[in-house]
Design a protein around this nucleic acid. Sequence first.
DNA 1: CATATGAATGAACGACCGTTCATTTCATCG
DNA 2: CGATGAAATGAACGGTCGTTCATTCATATG
Lengths: 223, 223
Amino acid sequence: MEAFADKQAGPAAASAAGTTARGEATRDAIRRAAEALFAAQGFSAVSMRDIAARVGVRASALYNHFPAKQDILAELMETHLLRLTAALDAVLPGAEASPAARLAAFARFHVRYHFDAADAVFLSYMELRSLAPENRARINALRGAYERRLRDILRDGQRSGAFRIEDPTIEAMALIAMLTGVTTWYDPAGRLSREAIEDIYVAMAARSVGLDHEEEASCSSGA
Amino acid sequence: MEAFADKQAGPAAASAAGTTARGEATRDAIRRAAEALFAAQGFSAVSMRDIAARVGVRASALYNHFPAKQDILAELMETHLLRLTAALDAVLPGAEASPAARLAAFARFHVRYHFDAADAVFLSYMELRSLAPENRARINALRGAYERRLRDILRDGQRSGAFRIEDPTIEAMALIAMLTGVTTWYDPAGRLSREAIEDIYVAMAARSVGLDHEEEASCSSGA
DNA sequence: CATATGAATGAACGACCGTTCATTTCATCG
DNA sequence: CGATGAAATGAACGGTCGTTCATTCATATG
């Protein structure tokens, strides 16, 4: 009786009976397996049986946690983009900071974040085409919200005269493409540390908007 | 015409009887159809029947021209990369030109070429993973040969002091990622002309290596 | 303990996959 | 004109695909 009433209450009826903690663990394992496989081989090259095998379960069990293969991809992209944007907002200085400082913070954040979430990043940029139109529109909007942060920085810098750029919209996309490219070649065992790579990209981003007088400092700046 | 002239090549004896011109036309149609479909949906999301339907033929006919699906992709990538590198060498100034001029030429060429060959470019950068190891190694070498042109320009500029950069290898990959990104958003009906877009990217590339004093021209340069 | 309930199973489904092959079509050349 | 051989066909192959479903398993609570 009470169990019935609890049930009607909706999503809160979680721990009524059965095993819920184990279910959530499996769901998480599915997410991780799918992310790695989709990123490595592409969405349509990966079968539900592939994902299930990596989780240690049969394919039919996946449908206890996701209604369809496409929904795994959509959730992967959505949670990644939400986390990405939230993490960005947590470290990005507000409008009180200089555009140069905000740009540097953006570039460093983007590269650093991509070291650890390379699979999710790659997925979210590459597999939009594998999404049904409704999912694609939602994910695309999230991606746009992230890109907007950079575009706003560029526009502010352009207006204040700090940046010498032509088109904030295009340059934002160009910069993001450049920064995201790190996922295609980064090797943890490579010759450069993560910090060194971040520094290079931050410096390139700064120069690409026309400010680079930090070290040379020959004319217009302080000395 | 070409079909007749091509006779001496080993496996050919091409024009003995039957229809060779029509065969070559079909082969070409297969290439174009596969390129468009692979770029739009990804290699493994496209079936041989999809390609055949776009050509106007049955799937089994494809095997008169290519031994397997994978070989279509490999040939697409290989001819694209060979053409790309050859076209680059045709327009790139030699070592007698300044690194700045060579970098500008590279950037403009890359963006301009990608307007027309967006599908092939996208393919060659994205579908390496769909290739068997042997094909992948060959294609990867071709890609490396192209990237080497830019790396050499950056290194020359660094050595001569014209560029203020940290790491030519990484910056070459970053620049190529940036320039290639144009394929992800370029719209022929967009607000900017191709020339305008080229100019923006050329200017960004120049600034990203630390030279930007073309218009401001306050100190080190001529006037 | 009985039972309700979420999680996992194995079998099966229709559809589609890449590929093969015997056969047919058809423009060309001797 | 008839022979020739490349090109196209349609049927079929063994597999694999995403997904469904009746059933079984496992567990935590009343």
